[in-house]
């Protein structure tokens, strides 16, 4: 077993050097432009700023930073739970290019003053983008440190003027089996109920930590990470942070959520990161940090609310977190 040791002289950062990504991307862009300009009349060339990896403009720094080492771009974009593109964590990176993120419409409806359908770019335009470095803790007991680019969900919610009956926000992912092969009914069933749905209580949705993300590492979000727009709720297990959103619905009752429907004993509505409440099939007390821990390093302890207890514990004052898992 000692043979399976990572070569100590090769650091992860050297293998997945961001510069390599940038250089390759630049080369591809130059090549694509060269081909395009020779084949298409110049007047038809429209600048396309919506593809994964394009640099996002005017991204402000925020005070949400962490002292921990960022997970590499390569790991964040190649190890994904996005069952719409298969249950293997490597398959979203291979298959997500099938999803078309433009044109993209977001429907906002329910207990609000301004329901409607919004083009993704119009939806994002009023907001100032900022970088937020957050911990991501998957319910499967692994974690990453991710530099998202996005804006507070609270700012979005205020725009649509929810009324007093809006107690919860429900989110819905795109349903399109042609673009999302994982949504095709499997041979033995047992898969998830599509489309993927998630939800937050209003005070969770309005919390300053909760954001809509549209970027990663200062660039447009890659499809496998939930382009063109996804939720990020850093004190909850990753599956709460629903990807590729097409609908927001403001409702009075607690909305159904996909993993809760699939296995209610294993995945609750709240799903706050909690090292003291185990998943029935594995312990949640420790986690493995992707890319940093090698084959022979022990797991690290998981902090309450994924390290955001100071900011969010008050949301759950008086609630039994064993029961409301």
């Amino acid at each position: 077993m000692l043979l399976i040791k990572q070569a100590p002289d090769i650091k992860n950062s050297e293998i997945t050097d961001k510069k390599f990504f940038d250089r390759r991307r630049q080369f591809l862009q130059t090549a694509a432009t060269a081909v395009a300009t020779t084949m298409v009349a110049p007047g038809l060339l429209v600048p396309d700023t919506t593809h994964a990896g394009e640099k996002l403009q005017n991204v402000g720094k925020s005070s949400y930073q962490l002292d921990e080492k960022l997970t590499t771009y390569a790991d964040i974009t190649s190890y994904n739970n996005f069952y719409e593109f298969g249950t293997d964590k490597r398959s979203p990176a291979k298959l997500a290019h099938k999803m078309k993120t433009r044109p993209w419409t977001i429907t906002v409806e329910g207990e609000i003053a301004k329901p409607g359908n919004y083009d993704i770019d119009d939806f994002i335009k009023p907001h100032t983008l900022e970088e937020r470095v957050y911990r991501l803790r998957c319910v499967e007991a692994w974690s990453m440190i991710i530099p998202w680019v996005g804006f507070p969900l609270a700012d979005v919610i205020k725009r649509f003027e929810p009324n007093s009956r809006a107690k919860y926000v429900q989110f819905v992912t795109l349903y399109n089996p042609e673009q999302m092969p994982g949504q095709v009914k499997g041979l033995f069933g047992g898969g998830l109920d599509w489309p993927y749905v998630e939800g937050l209580r209003m005070n969770e949705a309005l919390h300053p930590l909760t954001i809509f993300a549209v970027g990663l590492y200062g660039e447009v979000l890659p499809n496998q990470n939930g382009a063109p727009i996804r939720l990020v709720v850093p004190w909850k297990y990753g599956f709460k942070s629903i990807k590729s959103i097409v609908k927001m619905r403001f409702v009075e009752e607690q909305p159904p959520t996909t993993w809760n429907k699939a296995a209610p004993r294993e995945y609750g509505f709240y799903s706050n990161v909690n090292p003291k409440v185990d998943h029935p099939r594995w312990s949640q007390s420790h986690e493995r940090r992707i890319g940093e821990d090698n084959l022979f390093s022990p797991k690290r302890p998981t902090p309450m609310f994924n390290g955001y207890a100071d900011q969010v514990a008050s949301l759950y004052a008086g609630m039994d977190l064993e029961k409301n898992y």
């Binding site: 043979l3 790991d75 190649s78 992707i290």
Partner: peptide, 19 residues
Amino acid sequence: WLVWDGVTNNLGANPVETV
């Protein structure tokens, strides 16, 4: 094959899970 992947750092983002 597994040892080779280990030596060449090819066990993926979560090597323990892979093994």
